[in-house]
Design a protein around this nucleic acid. Sequence first.
DNA 1: ATGTGC
Length: 372
Amino acid sequence: MSEKIRIIASEQAWIEGEAVQQLENTAKLPGMQRAVGLPDLHPGKGAPIGAAFASEEMIYPYLLGNDIGCGMGLWQTDLKKNKIKLDKMVDKLTGLDDQYDGDIQAVLASHDLAPSPADPFLGTIGGGNHFVELQKVNEVVDQAAFSELGLDKKRLVLLVHSGSRGLGEGILQKHVAAHKAAGLVADSEEGREYLAAHDHALKWAKANRETISSRFLAALRADGEFVLDLPHNLLTQTEICGEKRWLHRKGAVPANGGPVVIPGSRGSLTYLVAPVGDLENALFSLAHGAGRKWQRSASRDRLRKKFSADSLRRTDFGSRVICEDKNLLYEEAPQAYKKIDLVINDLLAAGLIEIIATYQPVITYKRRTRVD
DNA sequence: ATGTGC
């Protein structure tokens, strides 16, 4: 394996050969200095997911993929853990895939965002692995760090996973039409144009998660306080070992900006962790989740044989899954994902995290609208 | 992942 590559995973971790091959391929790209695979590394469309890449001079839009700015936002609600009325809450969460009926222009203005064709979709989560999850505390491990974030173990939190919808898609498509998987010189007209579009999508995606949270909180008739928001598909100029590098993160959460959330699948715990240790050697990045184990089509084929759709709408935690799109229900089932505990154990073994707390699902909202 | 593909 190239000395440019590091894979942070134990021998027991299930990492597909194709993902490792994809990581090897990225290390050969012109200007590429280092590539790090995180414990949730898995194959993507040409480029791996769960990885960070540091390059000199060149930037590679293809490594980031279409959902520029996709990430996790966390809000603490004023809903109490001991007063959960599941059926009533599920009934309230309707109409949330429709166009946002609030003031989109005001949201854009507050984030200093220029108009874009994706604006009618602001406030919608989209499909794929995107979700909104209401969670309750499972365990507080580091009370001081937990309190420091303003968190209260009696209160439910809202975790929002979404991105830049059609906006990032359009930016990648434009690049691919002209350059396919090839990169750009960062300091060129096209490079600067991509970076400007990227930065816009990054901000838009954050505004999207904020809008989604306010919609869901309003539907639940709850208030919420912002806790944190971190993208996991992004490109930044970052100093690494004393050199300015273009740091690409694809399914990798920044570990140089305080605590991060690493969610499992909807059937497992979510970890709130503090990055520690030699993060520079991990390109200041951590795993962004459990990582997919089975491809979408394989998940549908395998799980349809074993489980009814309704059985997948409840989890071992007693939580509910709101998802009327049956394909999505099977594609995103917990069985299709790796075990989050193993991902966390690998990060602990590498000395890169300390656990602050764990949360468990109460309600997982996937796209509710029926499309099948 | 996708104002969702043949």
